[in-house]
Design a binder for these strands. Structure first.
Lengths: 104, 104
DNA sequence: CTCCTTTATCGTTGATCGACGATAAGCGAT
DNA sequence: ATCGCTTATCGTCGATCAACGATAAAGGAG
């Protein structure tokens, strides 16, 4: 039972890249705050066309950070917390290989 | 004395974007391992032309993750640990607003 | 001073991105 | 079945990216 194996390099790069755009970062942050959120709600928040938002959501979804499920006529998005845990773990390992101990 | 204020959204996005490319991720990882590393050494590691590596180093440098200092005819690169600390802190705040507590 | 080494920058080319409007697809209600 | 609402996908266009080779700049060695 290893719930959180680290990401492969390519997955990590893809996830970073997905967060590497201000609009997607804003969407991600909003999803963290709202927990569950329908696409139209996001369109209200960010100053972008609906098709553009949908595209950004697709990028986040394909990166694994976000998952969306269809609920009747609309789609509800939320953070994939299991993936997020792996993402964080991977970043921690990358940025702290027990060698940075000297802040001076 | 607050040594590690969080990054602005745009800085965070830029840093993520910088890590969002497999070659730059590999360079970053190598710099974490070697601590200090001259450009030519990196060119030996990644299968890319010298000019391309230099370009990637520039992106990492402009994002703030890496700093380089000229040492005679060559340039020595290393991780900017202060920035890295801020980066990590910002990501922690982003991905863990005390609301993810349920892994189930 | 001249050559060699090392790295940054320039210029180019093809690929990918980001934005949009228009359209299609799916569902609920009438 | 039809209409209306919501979202995904398509097609397009300009901008940015990623890669390269060639060239310039700067320092050390002879």
């Amino acid at each position: 039972m290893r719930p959180s194996p680290p990401l492969e390099d390519e997955q990590l790069a893809e996830a970073c890249k997905a967060l590497g755009h201000p609009a997607r970062l804003a969407i991600f942050r909003h999803l963290m705050a709202e927990d569950r959120c329908v696409c139209g709600r996001i369109v209200e928040i960010v100053p972008l066309a609906q098709s553009t938002v949908s595209q950004h959501l697709k990028v986040l979804r394909e990166a694994g950070l976000v998952s969306g499920e269809v609920e009747g006529p609309r789609t509800c998005y939320c953070i994939d917390k299991a993936f997020l845990a792996r993402f964080r773990r991977t970043l921690d390992r990358l940025a702290d290989p027990a060698v940075i101990t000297e802040p001076a």
